[in-house]
């Protein structure tokens, strides 16, 4: 399928002072398109690096037989400019701290990625941005998001992430800085959005509730991707 994920022999190292440190080492991973996958692991286990790799922000170490593909789109051979464009069109990103531009309104924040490609934003995208905000319960669409509650900010960020109907949604601890009721709301909406937009969803999270809604769970341990264990997520 178009948004199946193929990973083979993916290794990723970072320069750490004088030495290089291996952050990720994934011999093989296949996720069919539309899968909802949760990832957890200790800090430093490579979760954020994995998300950066999956959206082409960074590339794996050069090695024989190395493969990082979404459907037919091979991120390793794609030139950087094309990769940027591909990411803009196909990947929606959701961050723990929302990463909105606080001086832009909710609507402007959602439409910002459209300005990378259009001088004048098509009416259809305008309409979609308004629909998404309405659907996610944001009423003050012309107010700068700096004054929004954290839950509202994350919902604006979700609307921004799915503006272009991406085939992949990547979320990094999307509920970690929210209170319980907002976390529940965002969890429900994230899963709903992934289903209704038909996206593959990869969520890095430690929230049991969110993991409970996923099709598959993975545990990252020192850069290695293992099958998730239910007891890992039980409250201690």
């Amino acid at each position: 399928m178009e948004n199946d994920l193929h990973l083979r022999n993916v290794r990723y190292s970072v320069q750490d002072g004088e030495s290089t440190r291996r952050v990720l080492d994934i011999p093989e991973l296949f996720l069919p398109g539309g899968t909802l996958a949760g990832i957890y692991g200790d800090s430093g286990s490579g979760k954020t690096s994995l998300l950066n790799l999956l959206c082409g922000l960074v590339l794996p170490d050069v090695c024989q037989g190395c493969e990082l593909r979404w459907g037919k789109d091979d991120l390793i051979t794609m030139p950087e400019g094309r990769r940027d464009a591909w990411r803009g069109r196909h990947v929606g990103m959701i961050f723990q701290d929302f990463q909105l531009f606080p001086h832009l309104s909710a609507l402007e924040n959602v439409l910002l990625p459209a300005t990378f490609h259009h001088f004048s934003i098509p009416a259809e995208l305008h309409g979609r941005a308004r629909d998404l905000l309405r659907r996610l319960g944001i009423r003050r669409i012309d107010v700068p998001t700096g004054v929004f509650s954290r839950g509202e900010q994350q919902r604006v960020a979700m609307a921004r992430a799915v503006l272009f109907r991406p085939s992949v949604l990547l979320a990094d601890e999307p509920t970690a800085s929210l209170d319980r009721s907002n976390a529940q709301l965002v969890t429900d909406e994230l899963v709903d959005l992934a289903h209704s937009e038909g996206c593959t969803l990869l969520v890095v999270t430690h929230e049991q509730v969110l993991h409970g809604r996923m099709d598959r769970r993975f545990r990252l341990e020192r850069g290695r991707l293992l099958s998730g264990l239910d007891e890992d997520l039980k409250p201690k």
Binding site: L57, D84, R87, G88, Q99, P113, F116, R160
Partner: peptide
Amino acid sequence: AMALLRALGASHGF
């Protein structure tokens, strides 16, 4: 902010 713009799909040129 620029890292974020790149993550959201902005090009070098942008």
